[in-house]
Design a protein around this nucleic acid. Structure first.
Lengths: 144, 144
DNA sequence: TTCAGTGCAAAGCGTTTGCAGGGTG
DNA sequence: CACCCTGCAAACGCTTTGCACTGAA
């Protein structure tokens, strides 16, 4: 996918820099990562990368369609590569386990809203709730 | 619903204060509001309420099950009263219009995840995408 | 009278921005 | 060699926290 990177940047008159390559690579390798985690990963190989560069780069990569983000917690967003199959994130609010589902699970929802002309951004969807394991063991409480 | 307030607070050994009453009332009247909007609304009637009290109170009210929150933007969360019917929020990323849908639209999703023992928190769901009006008029771009 | 709740101020976390120097194309 | 990109440091928006005082029960 890093091949796309050079091409897509060029299309927009943007430049290919080592930082951009490393950041995209980090997102691909981590599969799901916050800006902070991306920064840490990049720094584990090269020492000098700045947090603001990570933010600016993730923004660029998202505009180029190479990465996407969702909100899997009330804190920082999570980025993932678009080279993965599109998927819906399902998050257990109790144990914080994140599971990916095939977009088929939301097909009826997409269809229902589509009837009103609304186009759902499936990749951004995060469904919160309580997973089977937690529901089994847990007292009825505790938030995100 | 403010009757519930006194009762539920008492159950937990908590106290009924003017601030708590006003904050719950604000959420009910505004229907969808960020902590900041709640603060402004409360201050428009009484002058002295502190932001940290709003945050602390919204947390308490949510634990008591009197209010709920969702994330309708990448910024502050939105609170609403649980005295409204449960609904799913659908947000246009372009014009930021928020529309509420009957939970029926996600019934198939709830059923599909339910098959795996996952209990979906329907009230917390926010579906992002592009509404009919924007899709009609807009160039294919622009983020949240 | 007790202890939960409040206001205030400071700190915290994640993110953004202005600017000057650096490196890509 | 133009101009995009980066690092740095400061600022920012939202939220949380520590502490002493206040007031509900």
């Amino acid at each position: 996918m890093s091949d796309d990177l050079a091409a897509r940047l060029r299309e927009q008159g943007l430049r290919l820099t080592p930082q951009r390559r490393l950041i995209l690579q980090a997102v691909e390798e981590l599969r799901h990562a916050t800006p902070d985690e991306v920064l840490a990963h990049v720094r584990s190989r090269v020492s000098s990368v700045n947090a603001s560069t990570v933010y600016r780069t993730l923004e660029v990569l998202e505009e180029l369609g190479l990465v996407r983000h969702t909100h899997l917690s009330d804190r920082a967003p999570t980025y993932h590569s678009t080279s993965e199959h599109e998927h819906v994130h399902v998050v257990c609010r109790r144990c914080h386990v994140v599971r990916s589902y095939d977009p088929a699970v939301v097909a009826p929802l997409v269809a229902a809203l589509g009837a009103d002309g609304f186009v759902v951004d499936v990749g951004h969807l995060a469904v919160f709730g309580e997973c089977a394991d937690c529901a089994a063991q847990a007292p009825p409480d505790t938030p995100t």
